[in-house]
């Protein structure tokens, strides 16, 4: 076969198989849907080099940085309005990679449950976006229901619901600490201790292990006042 004829045949096969491939492939949100942030160029550059998941990872790390302290390049939060940019940063991760489940849940956890934040409507918006992008993901609906219980003051039901997802690998470790602290605040030391012990046993929750050791010792002291004080984590 002449090279040109072979090229035409291969091109036809590529067009046909390309159409079949794109029809079956997972579509990502268009880059135009990315929320406006100072990091848009960074995201678009990484995505255009085929590093969309890595771009989402970097956005996740930047979100953690923002939650932990502050993120250079981002305007400061308005006075008395902590985590002003958290929804935008969480949406940025979600639109780079809609399957980044823990990012939705982590940010929703802070917006909906962190003391002094009180942005349940933003948590709801984020979780609804998660449901829209990934209707098969049960944890979004579960968190929405838990938020609804919280709004109604039905704390028992909220805790029971969130605890049902405690062992789910997608549950952020920070959400687990919120739950354990909620138990502790209610004076339910034994339940709180059990939750911290489960955190300590889970390798995935390593980021909270130091805190868990401290909390376990404190809870044991509260439950048995004679036990010694733990040394602080290094």
């Amino acid at each position: 076969m002449r090279p040109l004829a072979a090229a035409a045949a291969f091109a036809a096969a590529a067009l046909a198989s390309g159409a079949a491939m794109s029809a079956r492939a997972r579509e990502f949100p268009s880059l135009s849907e990315l929320p406006a942030t100072p990091f848009t160029l960074q995201d678009a550059s990484l995505a255009s080099f085929g590093l969309r998941a890595a771009a989402a990872d970097l956005a996740w790390v930047q979100m953690l940085q923002y939650v932990g302290a502050s993120l250079p390049g981002l305007p400061a939060d308005r006075p008395g309005r902590p985590y002003d940019h958290l929804l935008t940063l969480a949406l940025r991760v979600a639109r780079l990679d809609p399957s980044f489940h823990r990012s939705y849940l982590y940010a929703a956890g802070i917006l909906g449950w962190f003391r002094g934040v009180d942005r349940p409507e933003e948590a709801v918006a984020l979780l609804q976006e998660g449901i829209r992008r990934d209707p098969g993901e049960p944890l979004y609906a579960l968190y929405l229901a838990a938020l609804a219980y919280k709004q109604k003051g039905e704390t028992d039901r909220m805790i029971a619901l969130l605890e049902s997802a405690f062992e789910d690998p997608r549950t952020p470790s920070q959400m687990k600490t919120i739950l354990a602290n909620a138990r502790k605040a209610r004076g339910e030391y034994a339940q709180a201790l059990a939750l911290w012990e489960r955190i300590l046993e889970t390798p995935r929750d390593q980021a909270q292990h130091a805190r868990a050791r401290l909390q376990i010792a404190q809870l044991k002291r509260l439950m048995h006042p004679a036990s010694p004080l733990p040394s602080p984590p290094r």
Partner: peptide, 15 residues
């Protein structure tokens, strides 16, 4: 489809 696509695209470029 992706495997066929890769082969066909390579084939077209090489031809």
């Amino acid at each position: 489809a992706a495997a066929v696509y890769a082969l066909a695209y390579c084939g077209a470029c090489l031809a």
